[in-house]
Amino acid sequence: MAERINPMVKAALEWGPIAAFFLGYVQLKDETFAFGGTDYQGFIVVTAAFIPLMVICTGLLWRLTGKLSRMQVATVVLVVVFGGLSVWLNDERFFKMKPTMIYLLFGALLGIGLLRGQSWLKLVLEEAVPLQPEGWMVLTRRVMLFFFVLAAANEAVWRLMSTDAWVNFKTFGLPLAIFAFFMTQGSLFRRYGLERGDKV
């Protein structure tokens, strides 16, 4: 059974690693560090610190709440994989590709569910967003397409723009885009929304 925790603690565990990555990058982006005879740029060093911080915060969140969503599990796994590749190969491109892989994975999974006539998004958001079955299908299609757009946007930014631009995009642009997307779904929520405690 999931336990309730202080919303501020939950927010700190979810967003703290991202904020720490941004602040660390700002401080160390122009620095070079030598480890084992190899030079590492500040971006790689910050990525190396971000990986265990993300794992620890996700573990604490699981310990305090008793559960993790599939998205949270997939995210931390991809952070470890792509962040680890960046550190191991001393190549920042792998970590920059991580959001692309996350959004492609989520979009593909939602698409598979839709092909099966199911809304797998409902499994993640049902407690927070009570909707009629038709509403879940509409929202799932929109979120699937939105994830594919985010994946394409991340690819465009990291390939065509500077690392500074990508860090700002990842830290501020992606969360703001997700917030804006759900804010634009007001008419869907009003049309298909359910009162708390209603059954379908």
Score class of each variant (00 low, 15 high):
Asn168Arg: 07
Trp15Arg: 04
Gly107His: 13
Val79Tyr: 03
Arg116Phe: 13
Leu115Thr: 14
Ser69Thr: 04
Leu121Tyr: 06
Phe181Lys: 00
Gly83Phe: 10
Asp198Pro: 12
Tyr40Asp: 10
Val9Cys: 11
Val80Met: 02
Leu110Trp: 02
Leu104Lys: 14
Ile51Pro: 01
Gly42Tyr: 05
Thr75Ile: 09
Leu188Lys: 12
Thr38Ala: 10
Gly36Ile: 11
Phe82Gln: 06
Leu176Ala: 00
Leu194Arg: 10
Ser162Phe: 15
Trp88Pro: 03
Ala49Pro: 04
Thr65Trp: 01
Met1Glu: 13
Val200Leu: 09
Ala128Ile: 03
Phe94Met: 09
Gln185Ala: 09
Thr140Leu: 02
Glu195Ile: 06
Ala20Leu: 08
Leu139Lys: 03
Gly117Pro: 06
Leu85Ser: 04
Glu195Arg: 08
Leu78Lys: 12
Gly113Glu: 10
Leu60Val: 05
Val76Phe: 09
Glu195Thr: 08
Phe21His: 11
Phe22Met: 09
Val80Lys: 06
Ala11His: 03
Phe148Lys: 00
Thr140Cys: 04
Leu174Arg: 09
Gln72Arg: 06
Leu53Thr: 03
Ala128Val: 00
Met1Cys: 13
Ile178His: 01
Trp62Met: 13
Trp166Asp: 08
Asn90Gln: 10
Gly36Glu: 09
Met183Asp: 09
Leu188Gln: 13
Leu104Trp: 15
Ser69Ile: 00
Val200Ala: 01
Arg142Gly: 07
Gly186Ser: 15
Gly59Asn: 05
Ala12Cys: 03
Gly197Ser: 02
Met8Thr: 15
Leu188Val: 12
Leu68Phe: 12
Leu68Trp: 13
Val157Ala: 03
Trp62Thr: 08
Phe82Arg: 04
Val26Phe: 14
Arg116Glu: 14
Ala19Gln: 12
Gln41Met: 12
Val77Ile: 10
Ala48Phe: 02
Glu127Met: 07
Ala152Phe: 01
Thr32Trp: 14
Val149Asn: 11
Lys122Ala: 11
Ala11Ile: 06
Gln185Ile: 13
Phe182Ala: 08
Leu174Asn: 10
Val87Met: 02
Phe182His: 06
Lys67Ala: 11
